[in-house]
Structures are given as C-alpha cells and as structure tokens.
C-alpha cells in the first residue's frame, strides 16, 4: 500500500467512523508541513501554527466531502489551506470551492471514470516531476508564496530579467508537459 492510498484510507476513516487515531496520523504528517507552507508564504510562526491547526480542524469537519477519486489527500488539504489563508487575509470567502462542496447531484461515476480520474492526478504529477528544480522553485516562489519578481531576484541572487524569463519558460514547459488542449 502506498503512502497516498494510506492517507486516503485515513481520511475516509475520519469521515465514516470519526477515527481519531487516523486523524492523529494525518496531523503528524500534514500539520508541520502546513505550518512550513504558511511560513514560506510570509506568515509569522505563531499565526502559521494557528492556521495549520485551523486547517486540520477543517480536514476533520469536511472529511465527508473528500472524494478519493477526485484528488489526493495532499491536493485536497492544499485547497483547504489555500482558502483559509485567503480568508485570514481578506475576510472574504475564496470562491474556489469545487473540491469542498457537496457534489452536485450527478450520475454515479462508473468505475472506469474513477480510474480515469485518479490516473489524471498521476499523469499531472508525472508531468510536474519533469520540471527542473529551478523551474519548480520559481513557480512556487511566484505563485504559491506570492513573491514579486523583484523579491525572487533577491532571494535567488539573480538579475530581475533572468527571474522573469525563467518563470516564463517554466510556465511554458509546464504547459507543454500537461499537454495543450487545442
């Protein structure tokens, strides 16, 4: 059993049996990373810890909305963390809720659909894996840590122009790896 499948099973156990031991396992893995993730985004340690706990609390409360066929646990928790981070700064509900709301009543997915959907996270992960460490890092810094070009230049000790072109090339490469749908 892979770590991913294990995490998925734990989240489902929380939803179905209010399993606190499963929650403690997920907490042990994700809470320190969440705190680190928020701090990377410029948050002070105290607030980052508070928000990491808040995120895990939300994981517990929203566990029933998690659909293993739609996303890995990391991706799902990331969307919760992202929304809470925005809310804590802006006091307005971030409108990106598609992994966090009751699914619209739709036809039950056929098993082959589910295979297709989990495969698609797999496929995207493989694509992202092919980015160089530098490309990965510059995308992270700019989008996920919300750093302006000038600050990235300072952090990486690179000229501003190099940062801009590296980011542009990284996004181009990512687009090519994910496949252009036109």
């Amino acid at each position: 059993v892979t770590e991913k499948a294990e995490q998925s099973a734990r989240l489902v156990a929380i939803a179905q049996q209010a399993d606190k031991a499963a929650f403690a396992e997920l907490f042990g893995y994700f809470a320190p990373r969440l705190k680190g993730f928020f701090m990377r985004g410029g948050m002070a340690a105290g607030q980052a810890e508070e928000l990491a706990q808040e995120t895990m609390l939300m994981v517990w409360r929203k566990a029933a909305l998690y659909d293993p066929a739609k996303a890995s646990v990391s991706t799902w928790i990331f969307t919760i963390a992202r929304n809470l981070r925005v809310d804590s700064v802006r006091r307005e509900r971030y409108p990106a809720q598609h992994l966090l709301e009751d699914p619209a009543p739709e036809l039950p997915a056929s098993p082959s659909d589910e295979v297709l959907r989990t495969e698609s996270e797999h496929r995207v992960r493989n694509a992202i894996d092919l980015l160089s460490a530098d490309q990965l890092n510059v995308i992270r810094l700019h989008y996920f840590d919300d750093k302006p070009h000038s600050e990235i230049a300072k952090v990486l000790g690179l000229p501003l122009g190099t940062v801009k072109s590296r980011l542009r090339l990284a996004m181009q490469r990512l687009r090519a790896l994910l496949g252009e749908e036109q």
Partner: peptide
C-alpha cells in the same frame, strides 16, 4: 492540475515543528 501542483508544494514544504500540545 495547478491545484495538484499546490498539493506537491505542500508535501515538499519544509516541516516546521508545532507546539507539543498542538494535536
């Protein structure tokens, strides 16, 4: 796909220890 990128960024974030009673 970009949210999956976010999931990977979260997995790869350096761990920062929480206070002992956080859980």
């Amino acid at each position: 796909a970009f949210e999956i990128f976010g999931g990977i960024a979260l997995e790869d974030a350096s761990e920062s220890a929480l206070s002992p009673d956080a859980l």
